[in-house]
């Protein structure tokens, strides 16, 4: 998987997160999903389903336990997509 795919993942995540949260927080790769965006667990689970469909991959929700920032989420999706 190439750099541009990674950027694509990052862009999609930032875009979806900002519409999910409607907050004024400027979303960057270091934004914390829970403490800064207050994403609740159900919204996060639904976002995962969307990402699965967009990139045609399976993302186990238990892999989310270690995820705090937008970058970590993008890394996870990128890793799974690259392996698929």
């Amino acid at each position: 998987m190439t750099e541009s795919n990674y950027d694509e993942i990052m862009m999609l995540l930032c875009d979806r997160l900002s519409s999910l949260t409607n907050s004024n927080v400027q979303i960057t790769s270091e934004t914390n999903l829970i403490s800064q965006l207050s994403i609740d667990s159900i919204k996060l689970l639904n976002l995962i389903m969307e990402i699965e469909d967009t990139f045609d991959v399976s993302i186990p929700i238990n892999a989310l336990t270690d995820i705090q920032t937008v970058r970590e989420l993008a890394d996870l999706v990128h890793k799974i997509k690259s392996a698929s």
């Binding site: 689970l45 389903m49 699965e52 469909d53 045609d56 991959v57 399976s58 186990p60 929700i61 238990n62």
Partner: peptide
């Protein structure tokens, strides 16, 4: 599921098109 340590994939409630998509990906 969490206790088991298995990978957990959800499909949309009672949505069979969604379930099929996720089965196929596996």
């Amino acid at each position: 599921c969490i206790l088991s340590g298995a990978d957990i994939i959800r499909f949309k409630h009672n949505d069979m098109v969604d379930m099929e998509k996720r089965l196929r990906r596996l």
